[in-house]
Design a protein around this nucleic acid. Structure first.
Length: 117
RNA sequence: UGAGCCAGGCAGGCAGCCGCGGGCGCAGUCCGAAAGGGCGCGCGUGAGGAAAGUCCGGGCUCCACAGGGCAGGGUGCCGGGUAACUCCCGGUGAAGGCGACUUCAAGGAUAGUGCAACAGAAAUAGACCGCCGGCUCCGGCCGGCAAGGAUGGAAAGGCGAGGUAAGAGCUCACCAGCGGGCUGGCGACAGUCCGGCUAUGUAAACCCCACCUGGAGCAACACCGUGGAGGGACAUCAAUGUGGCCCGCAUGUCCCGGGGAGGUGGCUUGAGCCGUCCGGAAACGGUCGGCCUAGACAGAUGGCUGCCAGAUACAGGACCCGGCUUACAGCCUGACUCAGUAA
RNA sequence: GUCCCGGUGGCCUAACGGAUAAGGUAGCAGUUUCCGGAACUGUAGAUACGGGUUCGAUUCCUGUCCGGGACG
């Protein structure tokens, strides 16, 4: 993964506090502009997602979804992808389309070249 | 064939491509004075039977501690296993089941104290109805009895016979319980004989007896530790600020101890796993041989495709072991029981 | 992750091992009023779940589930 991962709690806190967010059905994206940086990302699951198996599962799906669309994301942003608690257990396609929808709404995708993929 | 019961085991597999954590190797590039670090390539490795609940027991680490006792907590039939246990194995007794089998905190109620509501005459203590005898003014009174009725979870052993005015272990047989002897057993206990003649329940109520027991927990603990706060030393009025000037104070340099953020260790070779043989009824122990099998710190196992007939439960390590308990789709293997049918 | 508390009607609190589980508030119905409120009367509604000890369990023991707290 070219993008570096967020590591410390204060980094998460600053993005939650100062950044903006956009929510979908399965995922919430918090983002904060950070000029001059290649961009970093952190993946988390809501505490309401019951069971470590479910939490880790949705985090894996989110990581994989992000990896597949990584090169289409605007640079210079810190992102946090938060998995939400839902009644169903989402599959890969659902998470990926939801993530794309949210990123597009937050205008975090690169303007052109995305249709070529 | 159906129903059941017990023990053990598996927990989707294979292939291709992309991706992730740890390890080893390679040498290219970038950063750095260096040590080293980032990016890259290759090889190999990478969650469970419960990893869970945190209910017990240990290892390990730190703190406390001369020795002994009390208090508090725990355990509680017997023998064995184990590092240890509230666990496991075997046995005894009791309860349940036609049975295979299952379940049991299963010491002591003549050490003492407490409690036992309501009902009932009476709850550890006796006479309401009643039965029998006597008296009678026919209302009942006196005495005997504890078999029957009624209440209750429990009513002074049970049941039968004798006996009696009616009754009663009053007497006798059997059974239960209590005490003692003998036999078997390491023991719990079992069998048998004798005796006296009967003792409510509750100790997961206080308690008594026997045995065990310091406290905390890897976010323990150890090391490094920018800055900042504190203390000390030096320097020297040379410089700056305060001040009319000196002393002093702050700024300067060095040291000290404690140590927040962060980093490193602890961190995986261990009461380890697999197999052979031996001892043992078993749990388990021993000999020999082989193997190395996650160590993360926003926290690694995922995605796509194909095949296997179909389907994929409960669920993810966080210092490590031994147990218990709880959750769980679909199966496999073996022993046994009952019912039906056939031979 | 480690350690520690708690669970009673919709909500807030009571209940030496002995009831038909008590009270306040909210709900419903009625009385009162022209109507509403207040007041008065009545009424329904609960021991988180399972097992055990006991004659008898909200209480004692045990196992689950749920909620909360401390450290971080």
């Amino acid at each position: 993964m070219q993008t570096r991962t967020l590591r410390f709690n204060y980094e998460f806190s600053r993005i939650y506090r100062k950044g903006k967010f956009a929510a979908g059905h399965y995922v919430v994206v918090h983002y904060l502009r950070r000029p001059g940086s290649p961009g970093r990302v952190g993946v988390t699951a809501s505490r309401k997602v019951n069971g470590s198996v479910q939490r880790n599962r949705v985090k894996r799906l989110l990581r994989e979804s992000y990896r597949l669309v990584e090169n289409r994301v605007q640079e210079g942003y810190d992102l946090i992808l938060v998995a939400r608690q839902t009644d169903d257990r989402p599959g890969m396609r659902q998470v990926q389309t939801d993530l794309l929808k949210v990123l597009r709404r937050a205008r975090l995708l690169k303007p052109e070249g995305e249709t070529s993929e």
